[in-house]
Computed example of a mutant assay.
Amino acid sequence: MLPSASRMRRGYEFADAIRRGRRAGRPTLVAHLNVREADEPPLVGFVVSKAVGGAVVRNQVKRRLRHLMRSRVEALPRGSLLVVRANPPAASARSEHLAAELDVALDRLLRRRGSGSRTPTDGRS
């Protein structure tokens, strides 16, 4: 499982990651990443709504996502907040498919972060 020190628990951390972070969507999940200027270990939180299924299904999806993030948390920059939101197809997705979707989303978020800041294109020279 994901180490306890890496789990996000406070509501403001979830809100910060979702509102201020970058987003990468996939059919089975959506990932939000906000990298803060803090020298703390990365925190990961999970959101699985009732649209995914009943309580048993939601808990299974959360456990599968926590297990997948265990080996991927080291790839996140220090001080980052990551929220993984499961979409309804996550309930029936095979673990290999869920892992591939998570890898694609994380790769997109981390690659965007490394590409530098974008300059606004407003038509002025």
Rank of each mutant, 00 (worst) to 15 (best):
R23I: 02
G79N: 04
A17H: 04
E37S: 14
V47N: 09
R36Q: 15
E101I: 03
S49K: 11
S4R: 15
L2Y: 02
K62F: 02
P120Y: 12
R112M: 08
R85K: 13
L2P: 02
A17N: 01
N34E: 11
G21N: 02
D103H: 07
D103A: 12
V57P: 02
R36G: 05
R118T: 13
P42L: 02
R111T: 15
R72H: 02
H97Q: 15
A38F: 07
G123D: 01
R113N: 06
F14D: 00
R112Y: 00
T121M: 12
L29K: 02
A86S: 03
R7D: 08
G54T: 12
V52A: 07
R26L: 04
A55Y: 04
R64V: 10
V57W: 01
E74D: 15
V44Y: 01
V73G: 02
L109T: 04
L76Y: 10
H32C: 08
R19W: 05
Q60N: 14
H67G: 11
G116M: 09
R36N: 09
L43M: 07
R112E: 14
E13F: 08
R85W: 05
R94L: 12
E37Y: 05
T28P: 00
V35F: 01
T119D: 12
P88Q: 06
T119P: 05
A105N: 01
N87E: 15
L109H: 03
E13T: 00
R20F: 11
A17G: 00
L76R: 09
R64Q: 12
G54R: 13
P89L: 03
S6G: 14
V44R: 04
A31V: 06
P89M: 04
S115A: 15
S115C: 12
G54S: 08
G116P: 03
T119V: 13
G45F: 00
R26D: 02
Y12K: 13
